[in-house]
Amino acid sequence: MEDLWRIRQRKQMSVSELSAKSGVPARRIQEYEAGKRAITSSDLPRLARALYVEEWEIKPLSDPIPQPRPEKPKVPGPAPRPPQPSAPPVAQAPKPPKPARPKAPPKRKAALGQQPARPSQIEHLRQLAAKLALDEAALEKRAGKPLAALTRAEASALLNGLQKAITEAAPDQVLGKRRRPYLPEAVDTFEYRYLQACQDEGASLTFVLFDGQRMEGRVVGFSPYTITIQTPSGEEVTLRKLAIAYYRREGDRREAQP
């Protein structure tokens, strides 16, 4: 079971959207979310349907939404000075430029590069080599010396070379711009919309189940885990999505036929 506000946030809905979708007043939703009152038995199915979850998934009494830490109160500054009697403007002399912060001496940087490679660099080298299907011997051949004898600078140069080789092997990936695929693992709205449209239109669907059995009917209701259909004989059957392989609109199949 989850708090109402947590489910709503997960579904990326605002209180007003949930209110419009469920028909429950926004003020009452806010009271539910703040844990001021338990969700009534009449509101629970409406909220569950609007959020596209089962009723038991919503906590009857939510824990209040954690509030962000209050900002530190600002210490009142000194009172603004009263305006001084106007004085003739005086040209201010330009401030002398600040002396630049001295950079690290190049000698020190060079000395760091000559230190033995860090273990993390060696580990990273091995990981990249594995991506290129290079074994340890091939990697050392490419480095020109044993991995243990590499300096930090040499390891760094070798890492850059391997990264470049990986990029060239997969030219569609831009170096430095790794794109994470859009992972709608917490979004189940597409199928919801599809089924809602089928139900609204009274479209007939054909279902193919995991054992090859076929069923046909109009959608009369659905939940995240089930779809209820009315078969041509008028019987209502609830199918568990777990048992469904795929389904399609009847019209689609007719269109496919010449």
Binding site: I244, A245, Y246
Partner: peptide, 8 residues
């Protein structure tokens, strides 16, 4: 053009 299917 064989239409669309919703696959679980």
């Amino acid at each position: 053009g064989s239409g669309e299917v919703v696959v679980q």
